[in-house]
Design a protein around this nucleic acid. Sequence first.
DNA 1: TTAAATAAGTGCATATTGCATCTATCTTTA
DNA 2: TAAAGATAGATGCAATATGCACTTATTTAA
Lengths: 132, 132
Amino acid sequence: MPKDKESPTTKMPSEMLTAHLLALLKNWSGYGYELSKKLEEAGYGGFNSGTLYRTLRQMEKTGLISSLWDTSSDGPARRIYSLTKTGSLFLNNWITLLDMHKATLNSFIKIAEKATEPSDNSPNGKAKDVES
Amino acid sequence: MPKDKESPTTKMPSEMLTAHLLALLKNWSGYGYELSKKLEEAGYGGFNSGTLYRTLRQMEKTGLISSLWDTSSDGPARRIYSLTKTGSLFLNNWITLLDMHKATLNSFIKIAEKATEPSDNSPNGKAKDVES
DNA sequence: TTAAATAAGTGCATATTGCATCTATCTTTA
DNA sequence: TAAAGATAGATGCAATATGCACTTATTTAA
């Protein structure tokens, strides 16, 4: 892998969108415009196309996906993306992380519920007033 | 332009961290330093303290939490945060969103698995080579 | 009196995003 | 046939967000 000279930090793009794109590309190859339509169909719209295309290029730079031009069909050329091994691992990991995230949230919430059982509703300490 | 009254876009801070903080503040009041320790205990460390404090102030600006200074105990003053009604709704909504997110991921993955049943592993179309 | 812990924050460089716009290819329609 | 629209991917710029190091301040421990 060329690893190009993006020397300092090549950061992962926005996690939610990345995860959806990886899932769509699981065992399947597609191009940006197509992916954006599928995401919108699935109710995951709201981003602008620029963000999508930039995210895809960024994912490619970090090795989650790879691309090649498809000029075989009519219309503008399409950049076809496929999942890499890394991308596949990342997707599995993300799903595990999601579960952990939710478990932590729930544990926090449950701890909070327990802590307030003796109906102590007042904020702790003698607190002075707000200031900006 | 100073942008001052932050009229147009006051964006939500990084979603994961926000969600954890909201969960910790559910039915409970705490301050930044304390929250950061709890997050680290729960295995959710890795952010630096600056990010945490800035996230909290940002959450306050968007109305998810509210704060007041606590000077009642020894040591440096503490900014005590509490969940607002908005924050509570946001937290519930986030948990729902997480479920939807995971459901969508799984549906994408399952569709992909079905689509490849006839063992067609080749990328679609006659694709030309990559270019940067 | 010095160091370390607690508590909250700032400054600056870099990264990411939103919004508008651009290029280009092909199809539809007036 | 000219104009408009859909498809496809991308960029420029301003506004935000983030990482990293550093600062300020209060109190306790060495």
